[in-house]
Design a protein around this nucleic acid. Structure first.
Lengths: 343, 343
DNA sequence: ACCCGTGCTGTTAGCGGTAACATTAGCGCA
DNA sequence: TGCGCTAATGTTACCGCTAACAGCACGGGT
């Protein structure tokens, strides 16, 4: 109440103010502002001018309530602190851009309880659709999503049952594929390094596929190391040091993500270890960061941008009409980089 | 209309459904669901049970319209694709967590026009407060924020005039301080490497402070290199190579962010250049990533978590009462790392 | 002349909640 | 016994906007 603000806004403006200022009914103002229905050029100009000069900002809350339409799409992801979800988001925003829909992000920190809360909060705003990372949710979460009566797209993963639609890759198969490539390249004493976050289902599925492919070749994991929290690059370095000290005969290190893989790579190079001759390395994700490394880490692109795009398309499409769940599987490409022996 | 969903939800539920199911008035249901006012234990139980079994999710749109209260805080940032804003966000979420307020993120991609749109959209949901990165906005943006009648906090930067409140550091002084430290360490042929994004005002201010401090010591930038887009780590490497080839007598490289600084560091180490003996390096931001590098890059912590926290506190506080803009300056600490000669 | 379509504008009735006030029952106490 | 008080619940009037329909002037076809 102290600082002066231009043209004292004691009360926030409504359609009525614009209507009075321009001498037409509220309804006509509403029509002008939404570009809907027929309005003569003259009144349109007059209304726009009035709205602009007053600094009117429509109240979407009232609008949404009256029209039963909300241009929001809820996007629920576990974390923002690694590069993977922002990239999915970018794909979503791009695609939603020219549909009038707008993404609203919620973060769960890999906690199912938190996810439940975030979904509940999100749904209470009656969005036009929801994009949720992963297929694993609490019973209550699944129920809420199923009941919501809006298109739901679960992303990243397709190894499981979707509530409605799904777009993603098979992490299980991604793990297998990487294992097969490693075995084909002649590595035999293979170790795994990853997170121990119990709720990173996708990392778990990759490991499962990986181990099964090893088993098929008569191999088992030679060693493994898990971490949680902290700087991934540093953890990668530390875990690599630890595992190589403990099991010096290891000839391959499979990391659950590129960031720790990069840490491991830097460690190996600093130690003068022959990569990929003596030890091979591989990560997962295809993060941009890797381009700047002294040597290109083998990895597997998780199709993040594409996943975002497809998910957004589904929402935007159903928004227009079609009903019915669809599951879209994308196929990651193995990028051998310079850290797996050729052939 | 094809897939079966549990207990067919043709129409979405309202208070009335819960009220009928539990035999009390809508008002009482509303009270129970919001924990407000006196309700007997018996009816409370009954209502909760009914709500739960129906799977009722309240409609916040209607609630917000009726109560003229929205528990959202708009957060507008230029980008999600470098680690800095997610960290600010983390600070904001943490602090908002137990205030009943919820952040909603908008991304501008460093475009003032986009920012204007995002602010407009955001305000049209009548949030309880807004947190906006930077002090530079279009006239229209500033006007909208000023008129909104809600607490506004501009973050990251304090070199300029705030619409309402501000929390941040002086990038200008941060640049000066780094220059002084570099000069004090005995470096004289100093180059700058950074983005050429015309809208990264904070990087610009750092450079300005940096150059002024050089000037005071009778120095000027020996060379400079700019980039845009692409993998920052890779760009850092490439720019470093380019600048060192062009100006081999450079003895210090000041990077506008840690990511390109890290790329430069990796390049120098790979080339066997004596760091910090022959060439010193410094970045800006204090990103976690750096912990995993072979050598710790000199940098300056931008207080990102703290900025987020303080901004959120201001919003939450004003939400409760106080009015009046406040400007909080935080002071980044110089972390010399291992890439500046000692004294 | 009549009717009907078309272009523009206004009126009415909610959307699904909540603030504020009204109502009722039950109780202690003078 | 009757008053005032509190606890528990209900009633009414919106919140700011939009869907749906109504009104009206004008013009052209028949």
């Amino acid at each position: 109440m102290t600082r002066p603000t231009s043209s004292d806004p004691k009360r926030t403006l409504t359609l009525r103010d614009v209507s009075e200022a321009s001498g037409v009914s509220e309804m006509t103002v509403s029509r002008v502002l939404r570009n809907r229905g027929d309005v003569s050029v003259a009144t349109r100009e007059r209304v726009l001018e009035a709205a602009r000069s007053l600094g009117y900002v429509p109240n979407k809350i009232a609008g949404a309530l009256a029209s039963q339409r909300v241009n929001l799409v809820g996007v629920i992801i576990p974390s923002l602190s690694n590069m993977v979800f922002p990239e999915v988001l970018a794909g979503i925003s791009d695609t939603l851009e020219d549909t009038g829909l707008q993404p609203v992000v919620g973060v769960t920190n890999y906690s199912p309880e938190r996810e439940e809360t975030v979904i509940y909060e999100m749904l209470s705003w009656r969005p036009s659709g929801m994009i949720v990372a992963g297929l694993e949710h609490s019973e209550a979460s699944r129920a809420m999503l199923a009941q919501a009566g809006i298109p739901i797209v679960e992303i990243m993963d397709i190894d499981g049952e979707a509530v409605d639609s799904a777009v993603g890759i098979s992490h299980y198969r991604a793990g297998r594929q990487m294992a097969e490539a490693i075995i084909a390249a002649g590595y035999r004493r293979i170790a795994f390094l990853g997170t121990m976050m119990p709720h990173d289902h996708r990392a778990r599925k990759r490991l499962k596929g990986f181990e099964e492919a090893l088993a098929k070749a008569g191999l088992t994991l030679a060693d493994s190391e898990f971490y949680s929290g902290g700087s991934a690059l540093l953890k990668g370095r530390e875990m690599t040091e630890a595992i190589l000290k403990r099991s010096p005969d290891i000839d391959f290190l499979y990391y659950s993500n590129d960031m720790i893989g990069a840490g491991g790579l830097l460690y190996c190079l600093a130690q003068g270890i022959d990569v990929p001759g003596k030890i091979g390395l591989a990560g997962f994700n295809g993060v941009e960061l890797l381009d700047g490394l002294p040597r290109r880490l083998a990895t597997m692109d998780a199709c993040r941008l594409e996943i975002g795009r497809r998910a957004a398309q589904i929402i935007a499409g159903k928004h227009e009409g079609t009903i019915g769940g669809e599951v879209i599987e994308l196929f990651p490409t193995l990028e051998p980089g310079d850290t797996i022996r050729k052939g």
